[in-house]
């Protein structure tokens, strides 16, 4: 038994590149899968959503304006940073999800690989979705996918790291910025991911992580007119009609939740998730002599 004092952790939000407490001052107790007390996490409020969307909006033009190559490098850098903290994350997953250490390590590896996988897509999905359109006239006609803007996302409630990465990476790789609400019961890996993002060249405000209750925060994100798309993956198995009605007010892109939370382990078949948060821009350019 060491006579050192405990260095206890305060799990805070990740908002605009900083780590503030909730504006409301609220916290809630986070327990391990076996019921042990782990930490007090910030319980994000309506005004935290407002501030996060503001930060995301501010960061969006700069992030979208970076070259695709550069965004790919930044995502790869996230993988690098995660690689150095594999042990920590595996440990947190054992606590949060109650899985065996071996499974936890596999999840962390899969999460790192998913960052690398999406980093590779950064300058390639345009060719898959866009290109030259054949038109009946003397024009070059080009279509390119462009980021839609600010995305509100509800992270999976079960898979607290791999699921979160599987939701986050495809949103930001194209140049969107995101406000993500974490799993309510398992927020700590997300808080740690925020610490990784803060040290890996991802500009402040590109990813904003709110720990708390999706049921409370999702309607605010859905109704927020400065949010351009909504990823409801984390609402698996619940009725999201109300959220979709709110989202219709400014015609948000909505990714509807699956019937139940899928396994995020299989690598996706293609860049479908990236394109779900893109708009197609088509340009007509006259040609000829």
């Amino acid at each position: 038994m060491s006579d050192r004092l405990d260095v206890r952790r305060t799990a805070k939000l990740y908002l605009g590149g900083k780590f503030p407490r909730s504006e409301s001052g609220r916290t809630y107790e986070v327990e391990a899968a076996d019921g042990r007390f782990l930490a007090n996490a910030a319980l994000a409020s309506r005004k935290d959503v407002r501030d996060a969307v503001g930060a995301a909006r501010k960061a969006q033009p700069g992030w979208a304006g970076a070259t695709a190559y550069n965004r790919g490098q930044v995502l790869y850098r996230v993988a690098e940073m995660l690689e150095g903290r594999r042990v920590q994350f595996a440990h947190e997953l054992v606590d949060a999800e109650g899985c065996k250490p071996k499974e936890a390590a596999a999840q962390v590896d899969a999460a790192i690989d998913r960052w690398v996988w999406y980093a590779g897509w950064s300058d390639k999905f345009h060719q898959v979705d866009g290109g030259l359109n054949p038109v009946a006239g003397p024009y070059f006609n080009l279509s390119v996918p462009e980021p839609t803007g600010v995305v509100g996302a509800i992270a999976p409630q079960g898979s607290s790291l791999l699921g979160l990465v599987a939701v986050l990476a495809p949103i930001i790789v194209s140049g969107n910025t995101v406000v993500v609400v974490t799993s309510r019961e398992r927020p700590l890996p997300a808080v740690s991911l925020g610490e990784v993002l803060a040290t890996s060249d991802v500009p402040g405000g590109v990813v904003n992580i709110l720990t708390g209750d999706a049921e409370e925060l999702a309607p605010i994100l859905a109704g927020h007119l400065d949010v351009n798309a909504l990823d409801l993956t984390g609402c698996a198995g619940t009725d999201t009609t109300e959220l979709e009605v709110l989202a219709a007010e400014n015609v948000k892109r909505v990714v509807r939740p699956p019937a139940e939370e899928p396994s995020f382990e299989p690598v996706p078949a293609g860049p479908r998730r990236i394109l779900a948060f893109c708009e197609t821009k088509t340009v007509w350019h006259p040609k000829g002599t």
Partner: peptide, 9 residues
């Protein structure tokens, strides 16, 4: 309206 507004409008 109760909803946060956007500079787009």
């Amino acid at each position: 309206t109760g909803h946060y507004w956007t500079a787009d409008r």
